[in-house]
Design a protein around this nucleic acid. Structure first.
Lengths: 347, 347
DNA sequence: GCGATTTGGGAAAAGGTTTTCTCAAAAGGA
DNA sequence: TCCTTTTGAGAAAACCTTTTCCCAAATCGC
């Protein structure tokens, strides 16, 4: 288990003082040698460096943070228990920060104000350099007020406070991508089946759907709003195709991948071919669902890990003292084409 | 946005020194007053407390940590990008720790040794009190050696180093739960469809399946090993039911919920009723899948959040200096009964 | 060879808290 | 009244690192 090359693990971490003593210099000189500061003989510097190396010295971050008033940690607040949205986002955040040596405190606060408050205070006590707030819904606040903190806050995929900086996905753009893709494939009657009307994104996407249809002179139909579930996909198919095939859609743009999954399964059960008779597009690009549908589902990806990355970089820049314009930045979605829409007539 | 009751947010955090000055005492006295230490008049103590309250004093965790050699943070290392297993686990860990005022650094290390090393070093530099290692597979090591760290390490749902403390789910027990449930419902020919043979849990569960069948005098069949996917569930049904209904199973115990989903869909397509003709049980109790299958899937839940909780508490106790027996602790699974197995003959 | 500058390196303060030690004043005992 | 004990509170060290002075020795110019 242990290799000969590795230094024996010390019971207690080695301090700069010990390095200095071992190299026969003062701690001040040792510090400067290791940080490339100050003036000294190249030989002295090298000797100190070697000593530090040999002893396995690593500076105590706590002491550094105390002095620099910068802890190289940030807090990530989320209320997305299930994590389908937060995980790619977090992974992006972490990605952006790890290279800067910044670690991330993860705080799952559910919808519990007391818990959220507790976590925020713990973060502040631990002197995090900033906070990224994220959630499962773009149109809801986290259960805690982050407006007047004395550290920078970035909102990602959650409702920001006024005057704050936020990154969200461009749902209108994503929906346009989907509907225009169907249009380019020659689909004429493009239905839209989505989640509950209480979600802001439902309206944003429905509006984009209607706009694209209008722009291309296609017949506009009312979106069917229900739930974010497979079961609703089944129901919606019953409504759309219950009256027979004539007048029924030749494409369905769904509000998420679970609905799309339900729609595709229901169509198959009715003997309607996907993509031959009807093209289907989902939203979220939840790979494990999209790839398991038959045929694999074309879907809109919100690029959440990019979004997280951008949020992380923005926070870093804020922490570094660079001012930034408040406001909401919408990041583009991308279409992931699989097999549920078919090839274009020419292709 | 701001209420009158809240103190004006200070540009810079208020220190103990300022509290002491404002209360007209020394920092030493102030510290003791706030921590309930030392001796002083009740009146002095109260005055200092009120001053601290009024000024919104919160002790600087960094300074405390430096002195106490205890940072009240732990690192959570995981390589489960997708997070289906780590999230409930993390939620349990966080749960156990938040009450002790301990925050969690989340480090997603994928399978990247360099990245893992980087994160571990960052943790150590930040003087975490301990590390919880977790992953997506019980039978694989994380891509980093945690054996000789000078801080406690607890393994949860991942392969531990020898001599370490680990918490894992009792897969044999979980499988027994499933197969015995089917047996109690009067099922006689219970097949087993599971994931790739390269997974240790596949063998553990298959063995339990065989044992239970033997114990009850039921015919033993070879498990069908494939992939963790719906597609494999479909394939397996073709193999099991391709020769017609005679001799075919009247129950299928699946290695995970996705396989079970595939099995149930495939059975329905063949006109075989679930649960009337065939009972199906899954594993993992991935609610979003289990509840979307038709009928909703009975499944074995590994109690991962409990597992995380136990791991958190164990780490806490270790950090507190209490010694603990090394070894692997298997935590029981539980069966979540939905509708895919039917009611017992008598019920 | 003498004053001015550069060079190499150290002392000390700072960051914010906790804890041990110390000490004066007050109280108690005789 | 004098000595001992208790009480209330402060000084200072400690945790570990960084940075700002500061100083002695060496170098330079002439």
């Amino acid at each position: 288990m242990s290799s000969d090359a590795s230094p024996a693990p010390a019971k207690t971490p080695v301090t700069l003082r010990e390095v200095a003593a071992s190299a026969g210099v003062s701690v001040a000189t040792a510090s400067k040698a290791l940080n490339g500061q100050g003036r000294m003989t190249a030989e002295t510097r090298e000797r100190i460096r070697e000593t530090a190396q040999r002893l396995g010295f690593r500076p105590n971050s706590l002491a550094q943070s105390l002095l620099r008033r910068r802890s190289f940690t940030v807090g990530l607040l989320t209320n997305d228990t299930y994590g389908r949205f937060s995980l790619p986002l977090m992974s992006g955040v972490s990605d952006a920060l790890v290279d800067a040596g910044v670690s991330v405190f993860l705080c799952n606060v559910e919808d519990d104000t007391r818990l959220a408050q507790l976590h925020v205070e713990a973060m502040l006590d631990k002197r995090v350099d900033g906070i990224i707030a994220t959630g499962k819904r773009i149109d809801r606040h986290l259960p805690v007020d982050l407006a007047n903190l004395r550290i920078p806050v970035i909102y990602a995929f959650t409702q920001p406070d006024p005057g704050a900086i936020a990154f969200v996905s461009d749902d209108e753009g994503g929906a346009r991508l989907a509907v225009e893709h169907l249009w380019r494939l020659g689909r004429k009657r493009i239905a839209h089946v989505s989640g509950p009307a209480s979600f802001a994104v439902v309206h944003a996407r429905a509006e984009a759907h209607r706009d694209v249809l209008t722009e291309h002179g296609l017949p506009v139909s009312e979106p069917l709003l229900g739930a974010w579930s497979e079961a609703w996909g089944h129901e919606a198919v019953a409504k759309l195709f219950g009256g027979g095939r004539e007048g029924a859609p030749d494409a369905v743009f769904c509000g998420n991948d679970q609905i799309a999954r339900g729609v595709i399964d229901a169509l198959r059960e009715r003997g309607i071919g996907v993509p031959d008779d009807v093209g289907v597009i989902g939203f979220d690009n939840w790979e494990i669902v999209a790839e398991a549908t038959r045929p694999p589902l074309t879907s809109v990806d919100m690029n959440l890990s990019v979004l997280g990355r951008e949020a992380g970089l923005a926070l870093l820049s804020l922490v570094g003292g660079k001012p930034a314009e408040p406001g909401i930045r919408k990041l583009p979605c991308r279409l992931v084409v699989r097999q549920s829409c078919g090839r274009p007539p020419g292709g």
